[in-house]
Computed example of a mutant assay.
Amino acid sequence: MNIALIGYGKMGKAIEQVALQRGHQVTLRIGRQNRDEFSRENLVMADVAIEFTNPESALDNVLHCLDAGVPVICGSTGWNERLYLAKEKCAISNGAFLQTSNFSIGVNIFFEINKRLAELMNDWPEYEVSIEEIHHIAKKDAPSGTAISLAEQVIDNLKRKQYWQLDAPQQDELVPIKAIREEEVPGTHRVHYHSAIDDIEITHTAHSREGFALGAVLAAEFIRHRKGIFTMSDVLAASDR
């Protein structure tokens, strides 16, 4: 499979390493220094594009790939309010698109545990919930897309919670999120339930970028011959790695 990497920083290079290990080729690498090479002519040489840039450029990059008829998966976070535009474009162009807050297989398992724990807590109103995420200082969006996904899952499954907010005090209907930035932290997420009697906490800690990179390549393999809008749940359900 030929892959176009849109974003060639630390994450893009980690994806390239995993892709090569799995027998794929990288036919296009777009970074800050060669944006002029991000052309339709170069894109169509790829079977799939993998986009990892930033919230400001993600939408334009995805639309450009869909315009070229290239299936695209996107790991950029912080642009959820414009995500519907990419989905509309995908539907109109009969393309293939997958965006996720986190490609890690472990995180997606963590998501399922989070949903179930929130559901169980409906019977135990004495527990208050909060979320904490820790990332490297270069991460631009806060809270992380993964933390937002965790909060939305809690809200969907725990009836007494209605919304989330960054750096907010504990309130009845609120899921507060705390975002911490430290040197060289790939990503840590904690969901914490507190009561006067005890605490319950689930944590996912990434040790490197390899887990995210593997998930991105698995998503590229999944989407290559498909049409439509997909999630990582679709990828994991079909994975035969």
Rank of each mutant, 00 (worst) to 15 (best):
H207I: 14
W164R: 05
L117I: 09
L43Q: 01
E184F: 07
I134H: 09
I131P: 03
N114T: 14
A14N: 11
A58M: 03
A151P: 12
A46L: 07
R32D: 05
A179F: 02
D198L: 10
F212A: 13
L158F: 14
L98T: 06
G31N: 06
H192N: 14
R29H: 06
W124E: 08
Q162Y: 11
G78D: 05
A219C: 04
L166N: 04
I92Y: 06
V70E: 04
A151W: 10
K13I: 10
G12F: 01
K89S: 15
K161C: 11
E183L: 08
M1H: 10
K140F: 00
E152W: 00
N61W: 07
I131D: 03
K115M: 14
R35P: 00
R241H: 12
L214G: 05
R40M: 07
F110I: 08
E56T: 14
S195R: 11
K161D: 01
G228L: 10
I200H: 09
V154G: 03
F38A: 01
P55W: 06
E128D: 13
T146K: 06
I177S: 10
E152H: 08
I202Y: 10
Q33H: 15
V217Y: 07
L28I: 03
I73M: 07
V44R: 10
T203A: 12
E37Q: 13
G7H: 07
H189R: 01
A179W: 07
F52S: 09
E37V: 02
A86L: 08
M45E: 12
M45R: 12
V217H: 05
E88R: 14
L5G: 04
F222A: 03
I223D: 12
L63T: 06
S239R: 11
L236R: 13
G211R: 05
L98P: 07
A216W: 03
T203W: 01
Y193H: 06
A179D: 09
V235P: 12
N80I: 12
Y84D: 14
S130M: 11
G215E: 10
A147Y: 08
I131K: 02
A138V: 11
Q17N: 04
K178N: 09
G106E: 05
L218N: 13
A86Q: 12
N80M: 06
N157G: 05
M232F: 01
E41L: 00
P176M: 01
W124A: 03
N157D: 00
D60T: 13
H136A: 14
V72L: 03
G7K: 09
Q33A: 13
V175F: 06
I200P: 00
N34A: 00
L117A: 05
V217P: 07
R22D: 10
E152A: 00
N2T: 15
G23W: 09
V185N: 09
G187N: 09
G23L: 08
Y163N: 11
I50H: 02
L66P: 14
V18E: 12
L214E: 15
R22H: 05
K178L: 15
I6R: 02
W124G: 00
E184A: 14
S233M: 04
P143D: 05
K178H: 11
R224H: 11
T188E: 13
K10W: 02
D36F: 11
R209E: 02
S101W: 03
Y193D: 00
E126I: 02
A91F: 15
L59Y: 04
V129N: 07
K178Q: 13
R160N: 01
E51Y: 03
